[in-house]
Design a protein around this nucleic acid. Structure first.
Lengths: 379, 379
DNA sequence: GCTTGTTTCTGAAAGGTTTCAAATGGATGG
DNA sequence: CCATCCATTTGAAACCTTTCAGAAACAAGC
């Protein structure tokens, strides 16, 4: 972007007035804090040992206060708690976990944190985890297999209770290795049957089918499928469903006009819109089914701004029914999935796996539904 | 929502055919995996000791391969690596961290993971962290002070390298305690000057001011401010800026019609829209400035569906300029902030704090800019 | 062949917590 | 007053790595 705003980063310029609106100007004011910092920082962190000494009890008792408060007398407990408070004791989770062997954390490795669909799933995960007294760390692979692999390694090393993941690459060895080594994995939004883990998914093929059937019923002949990259299962399944609908209608799946995108983002959707609007009207599809709502919103925005009327010149169906779909330039017809329920169910399966000795892996599949709005059916 | 789809959760019903579209039907297929699981699970996780034995070297050598590979001979290194591979060795991060004392993780505690503004900030954070070889865990307080506090405790116990936070409650003792106990904190999207930590923010008062000035220039007289709850600093600052604009125009800040919401979400925006549209036309504001884009989008959607024309009957200004703002029913005028830069800068300050011995706390402030679109200025 | 210097490897100690078998102390019952 | 029992508290061992001082192996120089 712009220059000065980003350029003077590390430098503690204060009130650097320069006006570069795009990235903003920055004014930085130093504080007197560094002195204070070192003064306080001297005191090393207090451990159970220090607390024990301060409270005049043994180490084991402090640990009991922490882990089985009911078995220590109220008087002692009070003493210990007071000592903790005054020393600012913070339990060292590494040590706890090392000794106790178990982590109270569960991770959700998302495909794209910028997609509201996944944050809604995350909400469901968190709800279920919280109910079970666990905390959730979110990680974002951002559709990048390398980052996904890195995070999986990290999480395994951290010995988290379990990993929920919407994978870029569901067949990676890294993923199927985890359970055998003791880290339960549940795959979210992808159906997997390799005997290694549970999965919770929505029937994407069916979703693609109902989306396209809808367009066919409306009489559309030339229909585009917008989505990519093709290594993402959701994309290929939804496309397959769309093809199936065509075939059921007695036409060839090949008739589907494929607009492959590089990612499932608004920006890519705009790009597809550009390409689509550029076609001569006679060859241009009259309807587009997008692999997700982000693409659909981008497509919609670009096409509208290039003068196409939606749905008259181009009908659009999205996928996910994210909250923004209904608020779009033209409210978007979309395939709805039970997002939070997806997350909640996945978390519950994970909890069952790590708690229940005779857990059996399951493949849960939900059925999506079509929500019709203006983008396919005028007002 | 619906009944059966959600009710038969834990039960491993397979192919439970029932059709409850709203929440979806589910069919679950058990696998043969539980047998396999126990068979493999027997083998306890291999540790450095096992690797050392298998490779015929000492414990310390294995550790050297892990941490200073350059100081072990190629031959031994190969032997050790082979042993690791065949034993499926996974380093125990708890033990590593306990002994080594340092974590390679940094956390961003977000105000609302469902708000694309914060996920964009997170993207910036991750970018900077990755460049420094660190990983990022995302946590979502969801505008809930209790959850925020829980996560802060958790992160402190985990001894993460540092915490980036967009706080619900910037003045909480929990927050200001962290740095003194050794966990650096950088506040994001809020300007703080308590000498405890750095902060990176955008001038929200100024943002509110330019938003309202814009509306005033367009000749609006009755203007509403939509936002809440009032314990969120961004809300009060933006409102204050709006008032200041009024006052600079020679009018009273009191003239601003306050529509307080319970959260900064699309749903709350719709609620505000309902209230606003319900007012008799003579008293209804002709313009609304919303504390963020989610509110604005909800407001917009609701008002349009209730028959108000935007911007003719009601002009709307949002805040954040999230990607969806431009794709809205009526493209939204909004106050843009340098989101990724915000995250990146914050992460860099954090890294400086934990790396540079004579780090000085800074308050960095960026300046927002107004992006004018149809929602305030017709076509 | 012996000394000196490098490079590589070793083994024990340390890090903060939890666990558990055993010790303590006070109360109860006879 | 003694034997028992129960509720608490104790102290040492264990969890798995990393670190570091020093041992070992080897080469070079004389």
């Amino acid at each position: 972007m712009a220059s000065s705003g980003t350029a003077d980063h590390g430098r503690p310029t204060r009130a650097a007035a320069g006006a570069t609106p795009a990235s903003g100007t920055r004014s930085a004011g130093g504080t007197t804090a560094s002195g204070a910092r070192s003064a306080v920082g001297i005191r090393a962190a207090a451990g159970v040992k220090d607390v024990a000494a301060a409270a005049g009890v043994s180490l084991g008792t402090v640990s009991n206060v922490l882990n089985r408060p009911e078995m220590v007398s109220p008087a002692t407990r009070a003493k210990v708690e007071a000592a903790m408070e005054s020393l600012g004791f913070v339990r060292n989770e590494s040590a706890r976990q090392l000794r106790a062997g178990s982590s109270r954390i569960l991770a959700y490795l998302m495909l794209d944190a910028g997609n509201p669909f996944f944050t809604d799933v995350a909400r469901g995960v968190e709800e279920a985890a919280r109910a079970a007294g666990l905390s959730v760390f979110l990680c974002n692979s951002n559709e990048d297999a390398g980052r996904e692999a890195d995070y999986l390694d990290l999480l395994e090393q951290q010995r988290v209770q379990g990993v929920l993941i919407t994978p870029v690459d569901p067949d990676s060895a890294r993923l199927s290795n985890l359970p055998a080594r003791g880290t339960p994995v549940v795959v979210v939004d992808r159906s997997i049957d390799n005997g290694e883990h549970c999965s919770v998914a929505v029937d994407d093929v069916f979703g693609g089918e109902i989306a396209l059937s809808h367009l066919l019923e409306l009489g559309h002949e030339r229909i585009a499928f917008v989505g990519g990259p093709n290594n993402i299962g959701q994309v290929t399944d939804r496309r397959a469903g769309a093809r199936r609908a065509l075939e059921k209608a007695g036409r060839s799946g090949e008739e589907l006009v494929d607009l492959v995108t590089g990612a499932l983002t608004v920006a890519e959707g705009r790009g597809a819109g550009q390409r689509l609007a550029g076609l001569p009207a006679a060859r241009r599809p009259t309807a587009a089914f997008c692999a997700n709502d982000l693409l659909a919103l981008g497509l919609l925005q670009q096409c509208v701004s290039l003068g196409l009327r939606v749905p008259d010149d181009l009908a659009i169906v999205g996928y996910d029914d994210i909250e923004f779909a209904a608020a779009a330039a033209v409210p978007l017809t979309s395939v709805r999935q039970p997002r939070q329920l997806l997350g909640r169910t996945a978390a519950e399966l994970l909890l069952d796996e790590s708690g229940n000795p005779d857990h059996e892996h399951q493949r849960v599949t939900f059925t999506p539904e079509l929500v019709v709005r203006t983008s396919t059916r005028g007002n």
